[in-house]
Amino acid sequence: MYNLIRVELFKLHKNRSFWTLLIALAVLSLAYPLLYYFDHRSSGEPQFTGAGFLITFITSNAYVMKVGVAFLAGFFISNEYSTGIMKTIASSGNTRGQLYAAKLTVFAIGAMLISLVFPIVSTLEVTLLSGFGHFPEGNTLFFIPRVLGLTLLYTAAYASIGALFTVVLTDSGKTIGFLMIFFLLIDSVLAGLGSKVEFIGTLYDYSIFKLVGEVAKPHIHSGDLPALLLVPLLTIALTAILGIFIFRRKDIK
């Protein structure tokens, strides 16, 4: 298992698409606050501080998270079916369960790194430009580790769903396209169905698709925290088990 994780990390490190995605996101994360900075400067509005920017824009990071997972799933996992690499991996004398677990682990790490780019790069840049400032009343510095920690956890949950679909789709183009549509529409579809069917409504309320919106909330009630933590963890466990189940029975072409 150790070797499998090591080789996946090696592959991630050498993956051009991963680095392209990271660099492109970093550039966008640098450019985005600059637009506000110059706009506010010309209009004379007060500038965002680092803390203010983080609280205002962290919600948008959910889109980055979803797009990052979709692209990385296509280029890091599905691509290995078309290049034949999956054949080498599957015939390497390791169980399919180990192979899937190693791939999911490193894929999730890659997606988590991508999900951190926007909040970290933008907040740092704004802090350098206008200072960090203060969190609004009621928020403490604990907000930063909490929001980043939950971002990582929810990205891992999205990654586990992404990895599951790569086993079925096995083509990078199809994977990216399908996951983009799925992640962007599932929220509205479940919300719509949930308003008509109670069970689906409850399911949606306790799904990562709904709860990801809570990640950036300035205040989280202590009663909501267990669900906020357990739902992504259960999502990871269930999708990983399902992914291993399918991968164990899959003929690799």
Partner: peptide
Amino acid sequence: SIIESPALFPHM
């Protein structure tokens, strides 16, 4: 083994 065609990482 080499199965059908060599499996290589194209960007390595």
